[in-house]
């Protein structure tokens, strides 16, 4: 296994008196899906926002491809190839797929929008992800199903030379068939060489697509393990109590 694409060491983050992340470590490898799990309030969203540069970290090391980097805002993160697909998707209903995928980063020739180039790139990206469910890339987003919207949002993240794609609960609002489609897409991203972080509450999803599982418990990284090394119930224990047998956090009193 080569250098991890993203490596976090000893990340701390507080909001006023509340310490939300405590000494968190995380490694994400290219070509792998790393599932980030944890109960509500465990700090998943905060960790993701720290990676994405929305919240600055208080202390700790942030390494991309082995080199320490400083990420102060979303633009820094994007320049290192980090793209986040948020739960509420952030697409404009009144624009079509191409317009949404290039929103804010339109290709231009001179002053004029270069529509043919954008349309081609959008088509190639969707085809590269083996997306077959959209009829035309000139369809308005308002006419798409939830799964198709998720697909567009993911394709939008992939379009920008991204190396790390973080997906925040991508299947939360989807039906069974659409969930399946999105999970296949997530797998394909990793198979194409990207590093993927998948936030999920759904154990089935996690076991279906992930290579690694990182479990947060009350702001601390309980364990990061290979998916194939653990069982369903062990993961549930990690989420609910932070430890499972020899895995997980050492009980505070035990060390003394």
């Amino acid at each position: 296994m080569g250098t991890p694409l993203l490596e976090l060491r000893g990340i701390n983050k507080s909001f006023g008196p509340v310490q939300v992340l405590r000494d968190v470590a995380l490694t994400v490898h290219p070509g792998e899906v790393t599932a980030l799990i944890g109960d509500n309030g465990a700090g998943k969203s905060t960790l993701v926002k720290c990676i994405g540069g929305i919240y600055p970290i208080d202390s700790g090391e942030y390494l991309m491809e082995g080199k320490p980097v400083h990420v102060h805002n979303p633009r820094d993160a994007a320049s290192h190839g980090v793209e986040i697909v948020y739960q509420d998707l952030a697409l404009c209903d009144n624009l079509d797929i191409v317009q949404n995928m290039f929103l804010g980063r339109e290709k231009k020739s001179g002053m004029i929008l270069d529509e043919p180039t954008m349309e081609q790139l959008a088509q190639q990206t969707l085809a590269g992800l083996s997306v077959r469910t959209v009829k035309s890339v000139r369809q308005q987003v308002s006419s798409l199903s939830g799964g198709q919207r998720q697909t567009v949002a993911i394709a939008k993240a992939v379009l920008w030379n991204s190396k790390l794609v973080i997906l925040d609960e991508p299947t939360a609002a989807l039906g069974v068939a659409q969930t399946q489609q999105v999970l296949e897409l997530v797998r394909r991203l990793a198979d194409n060489g990207l590093a993927v972080v998948l936030i999920s509450h759904n154990m089935n999803d996690v076991f279906a697509v992930s290579d690694q599982i990182a479990a947060l418990y009350l702001g601390r990284m309980a364990a990061q393990v290979k998916t194939s090394d653990v069982t369903h119930s062990q993961v549930v224990e990690l989420i609910t109590s932070g430890r499972s047998g020899t895995l997980g956090l050492v009980e505070e009193g035990a060390a003394a």
Partner: peptide, 12 residues
């Protein structure tokens, strides 16, 4: 496993 991180889609 390779560590190539170029976007495979732009050169599609």
């Amino acid at each position: 496993m390779s560590t190539t991180t170029t976007n495979p889609y732009e050169t599609g």
